[in-house]
Amino acid sequence: MTDSAVMVEAKGLRKVFKGRRGDHTVAVDDLTLTCRAGEVFGLLGPNGAGKTTSLRMLSTVYRPTEGVATIDGHDVTSDPESVRKSIGFLSGNTGLYPRLTAREVLTYFGRLYGMDDGAIEARIAHLAQLLDMDFLEKRCDKMSTGMKQKVNIARTVIHDPAVLVLDEPTAGLDVLAARTIVDFVKDCRTRGKCVIFSTHIMHEVERLCDRLAVIHKGRMQFDGTLEQMRATHGHDLEDAFISVLEAA
């Protein structure tokens, strides 16, 4: 694993939001992490810890106030377009266009990623088979939550990115829909993708993550393997997680 290429690298990332009255909020401070190809990197933290802000910086939606980060060798600040071409981002905040069909959504994003129509068609056919999507002509507002999740996954990987950033992708999903995501993450790892996976759910971390980081109050509190965390903070992952938070 350690010989795999470094796909995500962040050094000293800091994000400060300016308030209307001149006050400042430090959402993320001195975030440093590395993630390699074929690795699932878990990002844990309570609500408001700075997980989403960190992932948004890595995916170029937010510009870091300080620090540097590269995705597949592209700098998030100076070459955001190349970064976005290299990543697929899925979260509870990445919705679908309700008035478009699944095929229209996937075609739209394929075009935005610069794919030609033939390649898009072939990719859609492949993903439809992989994710068992027989509802490509259905409008998104007529779909069940599970169907939408599948379309969203397909949208995330339409351009076959090397890095996947998944921000609490199973939040609010039922068991079946959540299982689709978990299977998808496993498949990505098998195919050598680099996956950053943010979650609250400890058993997902246990089942999926090769390494994990705990972030709290905007700062990284732990970075290592599951075994290292258990060795330092206790065998039960939830207890270990709380122990890390309390130590912060």
Partner: peptide, 11 residues
């Protein structure tokens, strides 16, 4: 509809 962020993630 939460599609703005989806769009911002495109290149």
């Amino acid at each position: 509809r939460f599609t703005m962020e989806t769009l911002l993630l495109a290149p």
